[in-house]
Design a protein around this nucleic acid. Structure first.
Length: 288
DNA sequence: CTGCAGGGGTAAA
DNA sequence: TTTACCCCTGCA
């Protein structure tokens, strides 16, 4: 593979920190020069912003322009989305102002499923370490700029990995969940290729919930952050519950806030853009 | 230095 | 509706 480069000018809604720091991905790391390098779909890519130009450079399968446009969701009009959501209320206006450069990545489905199973009851530094170790052990080696990277393993590359091996990589109680889900997917107990053609997000969600380690929150994250790209979901974690309670529900005991009520308010306010609305609120409240 | 709570939830009781 | 759960970090 040879190195490719692609530049775009005056791209709307594109801030590296917002994109890579809003909790949707785990394999992007900041370099000394403020650029970010990440591994996805067998590619290694560095992204750098210089004034009004974004420079993409890396080892890419296929055409870099097409890969970048797909992965960074460049064909979607985020300006329009932000305009629509801004009209909802002042809270959303503030959230959007804070994370105006967010884009929701089109991440590979299997990697997204397994990554968010690992994310359960876990913190980001540890999630990143675990995913890195899984990639180093079972993924494919890619060398670029004298540095070694590893792609996230395919199901095929994981098929002979035992529960114990996962445990040794520090997965903790998630070891069996990953093992079970890998084999459920390999055995086609769910037909995930059909999900791309299924219009009804709820039906896909139901099938996701049948996987080991996939509960409501993880299922919604997979629907929103993978290349399934559904915006009509609203992942509720402690931060989202906190911000929704603070802004709209105002229950003195945050732990008592009803999930159904959060979902109801989210849909009522943000409609089928609730997924991206969640990202603006989440990023705003977690960073601020 | 030791002890302990809590973390971007899920599954089992 | 509660509770345990691997491992790591922060803090008393």
């Amino acid at each position: 593979m040879i190195e490719q480069e692609y530049r775009i000018k005056n791209q709307e809604s594109f801030e590296l920190k917002h994109i890579f720091d809003c909790g949707q991905c785990f394999r992007w790391n900041e370099e000394d020069d403020q650029s970010y390098t990440g591994v996805f779909k067998g590619n290694v890519l560095n992204v750098k912003k210089e004034k009004d130009t974004i420079i993409f450079k890396g080892i890419i399968n296929g055409n870099i322009k097409e890969v970048v446009e797909d992965y960074f969701d460049l064909k979607r009009d985020y300006t329009k989305i932000k305009k629509t959501l801004s009209k909802v209320d002042n809270n959303m206006k503030k959230g959007i102002k804070y994370g105006e450069g967010i884009r929701i990545l089109n991440q590979e489905l299997i990697e997204t499923i397994l990554s968010f199973i690992i994310s359960a009851n876990n913190n980001i530094p540890r999630i990143k370490k675990i995913i890195e170790r899984i990639s180093e052990n079972y993924g494919t080696k890619i060398v670029w700029n004298k540095k070694i990277y590893y792609s996230f393993p395919t199901l095929e590359q994981l098929k002979d990995v035992s529960v114990e091996e996962y445990r040794n990589l520090g997965l903790g109680f998630r070891d069996k969940r990953i093992y079970d889900t890998v084999h459920m997917l390999l055995d086609n107990q769910v037909d995930y290729k059909k999900w791309y053609n299924e219009e009804d997000t709820f039906k896909v969600r139901e099938e996701l919930l049948s996987l080991a380690g996939v509960g409501p929150k993880v299922a919604d994250c997979i629907l929103l952050f993978s290349d399934l790209k559904r915006f009509d979901v609203f992942p509720i974690d402690v931060w989202v519950r906190r911000v929704m309670n603070e802004l709209y529900i105002k229950n003195p005991d945050e732990t008592k806030v009803n999930k159904k009520e959060i979902e109801r308010i989210a849909y009522q306010k943000f409609g089928n853009l609730e997924g991206i609305a969640q990202q603006y609120l989440f990023y705003w409240k977690r960073e601020a």
